[in-house]
C-alpha cells in the first residue's frame, strides 16, 4: 500500500513561517492568567481552553492537510501516528510518541516530553485543578472531528502537576462515515 504521507514533519516545519517560541508561550501564558482572573473558577478555565482549542483545531486541520500532503489514513492507528509525527512537529516543532494502545485499537496515548506551551510556567497552589495545556486536547478533538472521527481527549500525565511527561489519552468514540453533499445519480 502507498504511504499516506510524510513520516515526519521535519521538512514541513522547515518550510512554514515560524516565530520565536517565547512569543507563543508567553502569549498563551498571559491569556491563561487573564482567564483565571476573569472567569474565577479553574474548572471554567479548563472548559474555555478546551473550547478555544476545539475552535482552533477545526481550522488548523485545513492547513495541516494542505501542507502535509497526507491523504486519508487507513485507520485510527495511522491517524494517531500522523498526528504525533507530522502534526505536532509541523506546528509546535516537537514530536510526540504514540503508546499504550488498548486491545481493540480505539484508544492510545500521545506522549510529549518537550512542550513549548509550558516554557516559563509554574502553577501556584491556587491553580492545582488547572489543565494548563487544555488547548491541546481541544485542538486534537476539533481537528479529528473534521476528518470524521469523534474522539474524547483527556490528560493522563502533566509535568506541571509533577508527572514525568505530558500524556494525552485519545479515545475514538465513533467514526462518522463521510457524507457527500451530492449524489452521483442526481
Amino acid at each position: 500500500m502507498a504511504p499516506v504521507g510524510p513520516r515526519s514533519g521535519d521538512a514541513i516545519f522547515a518550510n512554514v513561517e515560524r516565530v520565536n517560541a517565547e512569543l507563543f508561550s508567553l502569549t498563551y501564558g498571559a491569556m491563561v492568567r487573564q482567564l483565571l482572573t476573569d472567569l474565577e473558577e479553574v474548572e471554567e478555565v479548563n472548559k474555555q481552553l478546551d473550547q478555544m482549542g476545539y475552535n482552533i483545531g477545526i481550522r488548523l486541520i485545513d492547513e495541516f492537510l494542505a501542507k502535509s500532503n497526507v491523504s486519508s489514513c487507513a485507520d485510527f492507528k495511522e491517524s494517531a501516528d500522523v498526528i504525533a509525527k507530522v502534526g505536532f512537529k509541523m506546528f509546535l516543532g516537537v514530536t510526540a510518541t504514540v503508546a499504550n494502545w488498548d486491545a481493540d485499537g480505539t484508544s492510545c496515548s500521545l506522549i510529549l516530553e518537550d512542550n513549548p506551551l509550558v516554557d516559563f510556567v509554574e502553577l501556584p497552589d491556587t491553580c492545582q485543578g488547572l489543565y494548563y495545556c487544555n488547548v491541546l486536547s481541544g485542538v486534537i478533538r476539533g481537528a479529528l472531528e473534521m476528518v470524521s472521527m469523534k474522539t474524547e481527549v483527556t490528560w493522563v500525565r502533566d509535568m506541571l502537576r509533577g508527572d514525568d511527561a505530558y500524556e494525552l489519552r485519545v479515545k475514538l468514540l465513533k467514526q462518522v462515515p463521510e457524507e457527500y453533499p451530492y449524489k452521483d445519480d442526481e
Binding site: 516545519f13 512554514v16 513561517e17 515560524r18 520565536n20 517560541a21 498563551y28 516543532g93 488547548v135
Partner: peptide, 16 residues
C-alpha cells in the same frame, strides 16, 4: 532559538 509555526501564535490570538 526555539521556534513554533506562526499559525500557532495567530490561532491563539484569534481565538483569544
Amino acid at each position: 532559538v526555539k521556534e513554533v509555526a506562526e499559525s500557532c501564535v495567530e490561532s491563539v490570538m484569534m481565538e483569544m
